[in-house]
Design a protein around this nucleic acid. Sequence first.
RNA 1: GCCAGCGUAGCUCAACGGUAGAGCACCGCUUUUGUAAAGCGGUGGUUGUGGGUUCGAUUCCCACCGCUGGCUCCA
Length: 675
Amino acid sequence: MSVTITLPDGSERTYAEPVTALRVAEDISPRLAKAAVAAEVDGLPRDLSFAVSEGTHALRILTDRDAASLEILRHTAAHVMAQAVVRLYGREVQYTIGPALVNDFQYGFYYDFDLPRPLTQDDLPKIEAEMAKIVAEKIPIEREELPVAEAKARFEQLGQSYKVEMIDELAREQGARTVSLYRQGDFLDMCRGPHLPDTGRLGKAFKLLTTAGAYWRGDENNKMLTRLYGVAFFDPKALQEHLTRIEEARKRDHRVLGRQLGLFQFSDAVGPGLPLWLPKGAILRMELEGWLRGELLKRGYLPVVTPHVGKVDLWRTSGHYPYYEHGLFPTMHLRDVENVPEGQEDGYLLKPMNCPFHIQIYKSSQRSYRELPLRFSEFGTVYRFEQSGELSGLTRVRGFTQDDAHIFCTPEQLEGEIESCVELTKLCLATLGLEDYRVRVGLRDPDDAKYTGSSENWDRAEANIRHVVRKLGMNSSEEPGEAAFYGPKIDFVVKDCIGREWQLGTIQVDYNLPERFGLEYIGADNAPHRPVMIHRAPLGSPERFIGILIEHFAGAFPLWLSPVQIAVLPVSDKYNEYGAQVSRALREAGLRVELDDSPEKIGAKIRRATLEKVPYMAVVGAREAESSTVSVRHRTEGDLGAMSAGEFTDALRREIATKGRETLVRERLSAASGR
RNA sequence: GCCAGCGUAGCUCAACGGUAGAGCACCGCUUUUGUAAAGCGGUGGUUGUGGGUUCGAUUCCCACCGCUGGCUCCA
């Protein structure tokens, strides 16, 4: 009959009877006990009040220095917030769920409430003040384990019907016999825990950030609850840094930079989610697309061009229409202007995808196995009627282009083709320096009826994808329910400046549309066979990709993508003529140049070009005109010294060829330091 | 689509019941300038749209449109 506790440093402590984690901490040192936040017993997070039972157990005392503690702090913060809301808004407040978030860029926790009226921004200061009171009261947080029936009775008594529903569900789906409750004074919640030992430990480094609506259980058929988001840290300095980081991130927001740099705009006169690319944005986009087009040709892709509208029937055959009708721009009816043949549906759609058109091209002649794989590529603009609340800058729009292609191949060729698609997608990300992405393998959700095709087809497609992912050793996560309705996919997902995830590149395996459209090729055996399709887009969409790119570079694009590559800046009007000469020479060398012949002083011109994030400036005055040179300045590195226009051009061409490395800067700086 | 907030000059913001103001940008004049903002002057607004309350609305109320943060959705 004894308790043996092994500590992380390997030492052991023995107790005659069960002992709480806190007691052990006290025995180790009073300072540790004071700093203790929670414990980890046999690898599981526990409260400090947790009693370690007989036998041998590994114990670790968690302090604010442990990463795992932050989640506990934030979870307690959510409870304290809920307690404050109940205190302020009365017993008719229903509290539902309130988890900690540790990987979110902005938020640290939230709690969803059902209240007589939704809370607004104006309520937050009051709630924060009440939370501060609760912290000052240092209310002990106590855990108890109750049988399901008893716990239900408690919450029924409190009128907390959501909690009752959750307990029922725990009992039904996980066979729970008991549930754990946490009480802090007048507030009782069902929670797995662990929590801080008392509300005082929350401290002052918390802040409520925003309110939002959220459907109960994330289902839009359910009631909309009020969600409060907040964040908490152990250290007020860390909170301040966090808030500053959010503020900084908002400065890179592509919507802000897009306007500042004159890349794109939206116009009420045109309609929401329909971007207008301004000249500078259009150049950037053309450069990116032009590069990718070259890569596609090298890889045996065949360009095709297809229209923006097509008959509804096409989308019925593909299967898009019934499932995604609400996601389409409304059907155009032609009966009033044209005869619609008997038996043919009257209607055209603005295309939501390019695949049915590419399929028609496949079908335009009889195909032999000798032709396969056929890779039809098109930067096709598609239109999807996204819900109004979903629209967001360039990352979620209603009219956008896909760097699309459909690969038609034999089942034997499929995995090799998937592999090359993965490599091309990785090349795109690597070329732009987007290293921070995750790979998601989207599989069907077996409980959802929206997927088309046989389960054999799905099994095959999912197996193909898994093979390739394994073969390439890709670090990826499988997510059921993330497949396209016709097939599973590999998605490349990145985050924007405030941590929202967006899918960029995608590779989708599809056995189903070839079936639905009756595609065939004649095999070596002279018999018809069914091809497999891959839908793939390495950028995903230039719109979204560039949106992310703007944030990635904070608007300071590498030379090859910069809308203006060189600003020629005459020191005064007197040198405008020489400046124009230099500009002409650079432009003839294929560089994008802007001559600033405004009556400003040189300092102002430099400032303007720098704010516009033009990579290089060529300052020209008497000295340069005299010696036929330009004084080169880099947007961040400053003065790089004088060189001839020819030397400058050559250096920039070399730098453009690298697609990113600032070779000229390096050359000049190393020359300078070598001197 | 749902919840909340916001919509004032091209941009960033002020005025908050008494018929709008600043900085930047733009235009003009002076200055002819050497590596992140020269000086002076000027143009510019049916205060998102439509109703309502009021002697009077940018300000208060309602509806719509748009934007922002979430939720849902996302081929």
